[in-house]
Amino acid sequence: MNCDQFLEMDINAYISSGILQEYALGHISDQERSEVECMSKIYPEIREALTTSEIDLESFAAAYAVKSPSKSRENILVAVKRQAQDSTIHSVTKDDNASETKEILIQSEVTERKSAWGGWAAAAAVIAIAIAVWQYTDNQASKDELQALKVEQNTLENKTAELETRVAQLSDGLNEVYSSSVKKVTLKSVKENNTTQLALLWNTETGEVKLNTSALPKLPSDKQYQLWVLKDGKPKDMGVLSKTEEGILIASNATKDGDTFAITIEPLGGKASPSLDQLVVMGAIS
């Protein structure tokens, strides 16, 4: 059966339809059987749900186990041995005549006496293969599970590292907010009806300026924002600003002095002195 038609199925709906339980119970049409087998090959979730039902039913059956008769094991081995020999003789005599059959049967009896083990050794070998395949599958499943767990562990480790960095950043941020040497300055638009505003944190001890640029409108690719600090009306370049994903960035220059911060729009790379007509926001240091 081509399983491609089952790609993009709603697997949750399929699992909750109850068809997997019907499969495990053994009540299912041939077509549904092929369907379940396709689905469980494609989707590990379905395979897992199916295995769960199978294991539940195995446990159910095991609860009703009855000690098999003590002679059964021996009888079964003998029967399997006989079966193995029958099939050998059958295949040998297919193309031969009847007298040869008799001879082979006699030979077979002699062989049986010579080596009582030989016959069912073949049978046991076949069962050994079945069991080996079964154990291999179980082993393979464990390996797959281990691999999945390793991937999951990796993902979790990365996530933890990411969170640790984030917590460290936040904690630094909080320390800054509470530090007496850090001042918060709100920059607002100088134009009427323009609500653009942003906040910057200025460390008066180190001169470092941190600001969140996420509120600033996107610029054409040949323009850039530039930060200035003014002291008694005289501007000093604090560096150009790039709009980042997180929004928070540190100005490339530091200042320990000033009374006003301002941001202008300038050509890429910035200018030595601000274009006053391109003033976007400004705020006085209180």
Binding site: E58, A61, V66, S68, S72, I127, I131
Partner: peptide
């Protein structure tokens, strides 16, 4: 291998 198959399942199947 033969013992394993019998030991694991014979009683349940016999039940």
């Amino acid at each position: 291998a033969m013992d394993l198959l019998y030991d694991n399942y014979a009683d349940t199947l016999y039940g």
